[in-house]
Amino acid sequence: MDAHLALGRYGEELAARYLRDRGIRVLERNWRCPEGEIDIIALDGDCLVVCEVKTRGGTVTGDPVEAVTWEKVSRLRRLAAAYLRSRPGSVAHARVDVIGVLAVRGRPPVVRHVEAVGA
């Protein structure tokens, strides 16, 4: 596995742990359908959380959260709808969250959680 993929997996693991530590139940990771992939699907009370995780090893290209474009948020909304269609009656509503993980070598990782992006 190359370093980029390993960094991404590390960030997704930290993000899942972060959500669990806050009482948010992780339902699935790396859920795929023909339209794309959702990094983390979770349940926060009665709200489905579709979570995009961005991990960076530095800030040369900006904060990891800044890497999620409006186009990506729109795609995540479509993917959330596809997930809900595949599980009718599971939850009443959904939101899109972004978790940025800054993992600079030699420092503790920094996790930034932005809820309800584009709401």
Rank of each mutant, 00 (worst) to 15 (best):
D21N: 10
W70G: 11
A16F: 04
R29L: 12
S90G: 08
D21R: 14
R29F: 00
P108E: 10
G11C: 03
G62E: 05
T61N: 10
L84K: 06
A94R: 10
R32G: 05
T55V: 06
G62I: 09
R29V: 06
R25H: 10
L102R: 09
V60N: 09
P88K: 05
A94Q: 06
E37P: 04
L5N: 04
S74H: 12
N30L: 01
E115N: 02
A119E: 03
A6T: 07
L76Q: 12
A67C: 03
R20F: 10
V50C: 12
V73Q: 13
R78E: 03
G8V: 03
G11T: 00
W31R: 08
R20I: 10
V101Y: 08
G62K: 09
I41T: 04
A42T: 05
L48N: 06
A3K: 08
A42F: 00
H4V: 02
A80S: 14
I24H: 10
D46V: 13
H93V: 07
I41V: 13
R78P: 02
A3G: 14
R56V: 05
I99H: 11
L27Y: 03
G8T: 06
T61K: 06
E28F: 14
T69I: 15
V50Y: 09
R107S: 15
G100M: 07
L84Q: 04
V50S: 11
A119K: 02
R105F: 14
P108L: 02
C47G: 11
K54T: 01
V91F: 00
A82D: 03
S90F: 15
E28R: 15
G106E: 10
V68Q: 02
G11W: 05
R56I: 01
E37N: 09
D44P: 03
Y83H: 02
A15G: 04
R32N: 11
Y18P: 02
L76E: 05
V98Q: 02
S86L: 06
G89A: 01
L27C: 01
G23Q: 11
I41S: 01
E28M: 15
V114M: 15
A80W: 13
H4G: 06
D44N: 13
R78F: 00
A16G: 15
V91I: 00
I38S: 06
V111F: 11
C51S: 15
A3L: 13
T59L: 15
R25T: 05
T59R: 11
D21H: 09
M1C: 10
R85F: 08
R77T: 06
E37G: 09
V53E: 12
A94V: 03
R20K: 14
R17G: 07
A82C: 06
L5C: 03
V98E: 00
E66L: 00
G45K: 06
